[in-house]
Design a protein around this nucleic acid. Structure first.
Lengths: 369, 369
DNA sequence: CAATGAATAGAGAACGTTCTCATATATCTG
DNA sequence: CAGATATATGAGAACGTTCTCTATTCATTG
């Protein structure tokens, strides 16, 4: 009665009175088989509770129909959504998903990639934690393992990539505040690692309109670049004291920095937070300071988190298409796995300004008006 | 120079001038080998960029060092945290993680389990979407694939399980409201599927103190049971009109139901929401109704989501240890994989009341006081 | 000193598939 | 009708490991 031990193709073949080759053809769906044999074999397979062994299949075909993903942290809503997007198209194409967390640590990422490679995934989707040192990723390419990056680029690694258009998004967010009459706009950004020779030098170059290698910057630096550009276009000077650098992906760091930012002489009248984690930390700080939004302070966040729409007031934010990013990445990867051989593409998805109630319109006493 | 094509043990053996058996022993870390051979083989392996093929290894050992997980929806913070917990202990033990979404649909779950079984995972962690029909799970057991359930039980399936103590948690939440003087407490629950012959019958039996097969109920029914028990203990009658049944895991359904609940004659003065999704939908509804918490309405939620701590006021909630649930499940599963053979255990983790500012103390004109 | 057993190495089977090849028949083509 | 082609089946190799078995050496034991 019950499905006992695992039956192999050989068992099924014996029960059906055919060769393993024929049984394999029926069950694997390849080659030629007569309808008569088909019925016979399928019946035997059903009776024995036959289940194909993907290991054996993968060993010989060299394909596992499995995608590997190295995410920063599944628990973070950004990665959770991206993963869901990846999962959607993987599932639709009959692929499994092997998922690991890097916690933004290079060594854990290297370890993850090694694990996934050993398990012979057909392709990898990675959010690289280090945009410079990436021998492990170059290795993959030389082994001809398809690879797609999400969110960040790696210097010198020419490969498919999906990201939000962070510079434009940062610019739009800050323009929105400038247009509402704000002139002193604080920015809460994580800005891990040094880009462009330190923060001060970066701000100076950006303010001067230096194009830089903007494509290769970390997302938070790109959003900061957008912040500076919006200022430059509006003819408003950037005050470096309004740039808070958390230095790590942690809400606590943001929370600790906000009071400093607001406690200065001539404090900002508005804040721009550059990702979900910074937004969360900032909200905690503002709640602790018992500030009223937008009366005491205006706010534009990045990434549309659940709570932003039902806070009182709603939080204005740049919504990035997280699900679509994951889906796009997975589709590109599947394309490569199928053998598409075009040159590496970078897909930049636009973020959308969702205007809710966290921005106060200010009257500006501007001689130019 | 570069690591070119994949080198096999045979290649390494040839380069080192030994047999594949010896090379295998060195690289696989089993059997006896002299230090001399070890060095020789390892050097050759390094030069060739040898990477073990987990498929071949798994095919012969029958172990893949991979865990399969069927979650409801990675994007949901509950599952995201549970997954992170599972991932933590899997990683610490050198196991990979194959993750799928069921979207609470039985057919997708069956499909997922089949996929994972074909990929020969060493064990499975499942949040079953149907607590009755689960032939696919019984199948696993008869194939001796270790299995751990999270959050929900399956009737007649005697297997390890990890869950929050939902009944006690529901009771504690509602007791908290009763003690604050609330007498008309609404409950927003998803309550999918019928338990105990329909809602009315369930309420009647629960109010009569019928113990029922409480262990096997869906979590939201268990939390409802806690709601009824708290009422019974306090000597307060349960009004069925205060029980809103969303009927699906959707914030929209909750959002739509709250106005009905509040629009009745003699409306509730407090609400208890039974999970994160219901809480989100309820918050949306309350925001839309422009109600002030806790002045117009008190609120206790279930599951501690990020925003609950920095809303103004903070939301009082029953915090369930999601990460720990995932970790416990993974640890139990690994134990089974290692061959532990004790009878199936159910681990019930307590939820903790986090008291913030969403509950108003009411003066009760109670003849008994 | 013969007998035991641990340490070491190799030959070749095994895991469960798909693939290649050989063979046979049926069906088409000119 | 000869020859080509499509259809159908089976025998056995191949994938890259680990496992089993045999053989040899060397130290230890009674």
């Amino acid at each position: 009665m019950a499905v006992r031990n695992k039956a192999t193709i050989a068992d099924v073949a014996r029960a059906a009175g055919v060769s393993t080759a024929t049984a394999g053809r029926v069950l694997g769906g390849y080659g030629y088989t007569s309808d008569e044999m088909k019925d016979q074999v399928q019946k035997a397979a059903r009776q024995l509770g036959y289940r194909p062994n993907a290991l054996a299949r993968g060993l010989i075909t060299g394909k596992t129909r499995t995608l590997g993903v190295v995410a920063g942290d599944i628990q973070n809503p950004f990665y959770a959504s991206v993963l869901r997007g990846i999962s959607n198209v993987a599932e639709a194409n009959g692929f499994g998903l092997l998922i690991t967390n890097s916690d933004e640590s290079r060594s854990k990422e290297v370890q993850s990639v090694e694990l996934l490679a050993q398990k012979q995934v057909d392709g990898l989707i990675v959010t690289p934690s280090d945009t410079r040192k990436a021998r492990h990723l170059h290795n993959l390419l030389s082994m001809e393992v398809p690879l797609v990056l999400i969110d960040r680029a790696v210097a010198g690694l020419s490969v498919d990539r999906v990201a939000a258009d962070n510079i434009a998004a940062g610019e739009q967010a800050v323009r929105h505040l400038l247009e509402a009459g704000h002139r002193r706009i604080g920015i809460v950004a994580e800005l891990v690692e040094d880009e462009g020779g330190g923060l001060a030098a970066f701000l100076a170059r950006a303010a001067a309109g230096d194009p830089m290698e903007a494509e290769g910057l970390y997302p938070s630096w790109q959003r900061l670049l957008g912040y500076v550009r919006a200022h430059r276009i509006a003819g408003v000077a950037v005050d470096p004291r309004l740039v808070f650098r958390a230095g790590s992906y942690s809400a606590e760091a943001a929370q600790a920095g906000v009071p400093q930012l607001l406690g200065q002489p001539d404090p900002p009248t508005a804040l721009f937070t550059t990702d979900g984690t910074m937004s969360e930390g900032t909200m905690r700080a503002l709640t602790a300071l018992n500030l009223s939004i937008p009366r005491d302070l205006s706010l534009v966040c990045f990434d549309d988190l659940d709570w932003m729409s039902f806070m009182q007031p709603g939080i204005t934010t740049m919504s990035q298409p997280r699900l679509a990013m994951g889906e796009a990445a997975a589709r590109m990867l599947l394309g490569r796995i199928r053998g598409e051989n075009c040159p590496p593409r970078t897909v930049l998805l636009p973020a959308e300004l969702i205007s809710r109630g966290s921005v106060l319109r200010r009257r500006v006493f501007d001689p130019a008006v």
